[in-house]
Design a protein around this nucleic acid. Structure first.
Lengths: 349, 349
DNA sequence: CTGAAAGCGCTTACAG
DNA sequence: CTGAAAGCGCTTACAG
């Protein structure tokens, strides 16, 4: 590995000038800058990160703490986020330090990392309402960015989709197709995104004058098995007249709903419409469903760069208020949704 | 953060002596060592890793490159390994750098990390037979450790269970229970562990004088769906007389087999015995199956510390030949295996 | 526009 | 047994 000194020797320049040239300082002449860059390229120069970090006083690492929970989908979405964040942070010469939250105290793992001065900031995901981790980190004065948002009046940097709109727009699409009995299989109500989607669903149903039957709004883990279980029960009419449409908080749930419909010899979308929110996981393509699944689509992958960038900017001193992003999922209408069937004219009482 | 200098000032010692005391150099007097340690503790001293790395000339990071494959289980086992390795490496003050292997060239991602001098070594998992990554890294002279083994005469550091024995012992247990038609649902034959298990199964069957029907040995992805699919086909007698026992290369496959048996109103273990190899994933407990699953058990978690330690030792100069570990899975007999049923007396032709 | 110097926090020959 | 000194590779006031 070449060093600044070696490049300097080669060019008859001081290491200081080489450093400035490489870092794009304006006072360096264009000619010197170009010569230095050429030589650096030729000699395969790469800055020694440890030296840079030593002098800047930063660790060059950011932390992420994983909650171990019995949530099968967590693996898939989490892997997706993990890969995306690693890549985005690597572009900023920053490493991601992972730790597992083993215990009952939700902030213990954060406290430990902080005491060890290991990281320059944190990335949090899957917030619950009024997340205790957020209060802790705010008081500790540590930079952090949320993927998601634990309260509407958040004053910290975050990146999230509009989860209220996700549910409301799904209802709107189905209502426009004439559906009156629309079930919503939501995620665990623990998570703030599920709380927002719940509100979006209920408000939209009310706006269209559609009552919601007892049991038509469920909160369960995002798995194929849970989707199947809930759909079987609803389609059997165990909780009032069966729905003519299902909105699912994840494509895994939709898989289970499709299987339940098939078991009852109901065809999609003729007898029952199915749609889902789609994180766009590479291993679970909504477009590969039969029929292709209508979704509100928001690739998890696309959240990674903004989240990583926001954290780096925050550490660099940017005002947190400028680092809040609320985006919308894209409505992708495919073949799993259609006009309400004949027998679907009656709303729930 | 306290520094060596500050501790030295506090105690009237030089930073050099403080460094030696903290690093346990033998020439430091016991009294000085204790004083230094006490002061370090009191001041909350933590060595600055970047300074240590700068002076040692090491990056303090090791790389791991994930193959993105359409293998659902990969997520779960991979997460398990990832968490375990992060923790084990953190204990050695080393970070794990993750990258995703996007493309067709299996060594491209390794080459890139190497060129950037980013890591001191690599951890590889899920080897295929005569893995090209291994040849590449060996020629490049880079330290690496395998979780698994791509050939029997491996000359590099590895940690693996005896996969031949996993299959052979399973056959042995079932043969001792009087089973004669034993099917083996194996993983993708691409992977070396599947190749070894295949050999163990075939050899053991031969040793007990049991022919193997066409189609009784399958190679499929380790998923519940694949287990179900294979078991349905075998139990229907589509590939000769139905098996009276199933050995599964993963607990996910066993889940599918159990479901298939239930669908056919076969009870486990009265009508059919089921056993599996168990990586002991926290989200998929063999003991929670109904009936509790008989397994060859080898917690993935337990491989992480030896793998991480081996890599650190290798980087530290230990002879690779001393860093090869072959362990055995533990046979845990539970309730899903029992004596062969009446109709199971005839071996396959 | 460029250089000489100091310093980030640590380790380790070299002296004594 | 301990200290003074040099050095790892970089950055950045301070001079000129």
């Amino acid at each position: 590995m070449a060093t600044l000194k070696e490049i300097g020797l080669e060019l008859g320049l001081s290491p200081a000038t080489v450093s400035r040239a490489l870092n794009g300082f304006p006072e360096v002449s264009a000619k010197t800058r170009d010569r230095v860059r050429e030589a650096a390229e030729r000699l395969g120069y790469r800055a020694n990160r440890n030296a840079q970090r030593l002098v800047s006083g930063r660790s060059g690492m950011v932390g992420m703490i994983v909650k171990t929970r019995a949530d099968l989908r967590a693996d898939q979405t989490f892997m997706e986020i993990l890969m995306g964040l690693s890549a985005a942070l690597a572009d900023r010469d920053t490493d991601l330090v992972l730790a597992v939250d083993q215990g009952r105290d939700p902030v213990a793992a954060y406290r430990r990392m902080l005491e060890r001065d290991m990281v320059d900031g944190f990335i949090l995901n899957a917030p619950v309402m009024d997340d205790p981790r957020i209060n802790f980190l705010r008081e500790a004065g540590v930079p952090f960015v949320l993927h998601g948002r634990d309260r509407l009046d958040a004053d910290y940097p975050f990146f999230t989709i509009d989860n209220y709109a996700v549910a409301a727009e799904s209802v709107q699409l189905l209502a426009a197709l004439g559906h009156k009995r629309i079930a919503f299989l939501n995620g665990p109500v623990l998570y703030s995104h599920a709380v927002r989607r719940r509100a979006g669903y209920l408000d939209a149903m009310a706006r269209f004058g559609l009552p919601v039957a007892e049991g038509a709004l469920t909160h369960d883990e995002p798995s194929e098995a849970a989707g199947y279980r809930q759909a079987v029960s609803l389609l059997a009419g165990q909780r009032g007249a069966p729905p003519t449409a299902f909105i699912c908080s994840s494509t895994l749930l939709a898989e289970g709903v499709m299987r339940a419909a098939k078991d009852r010899r109901l065809s999609v979308p003729e007898d029952v419409s199915v749609m889902a929110h789609d994180d766009d996981l590479p291993l679970l393509r909504a477009i590969s469903f039969t029929p292709a699944l209508t979704v509100t689509r928001a690739p998890l992958r696309e959240a990674c760069i903004p989240v990583a960038t926001a954290l780096m900017d925050l550490i660099g001193g940017t005002d947190p208020a400028e680092l809040q992003t609320l985006t919308r999922a894209e409505l992708v209408v495919r073949d799993s949704t259609g006009p309400a069937p004949r027998n679907g004219d009656t709303p729930w009482p």
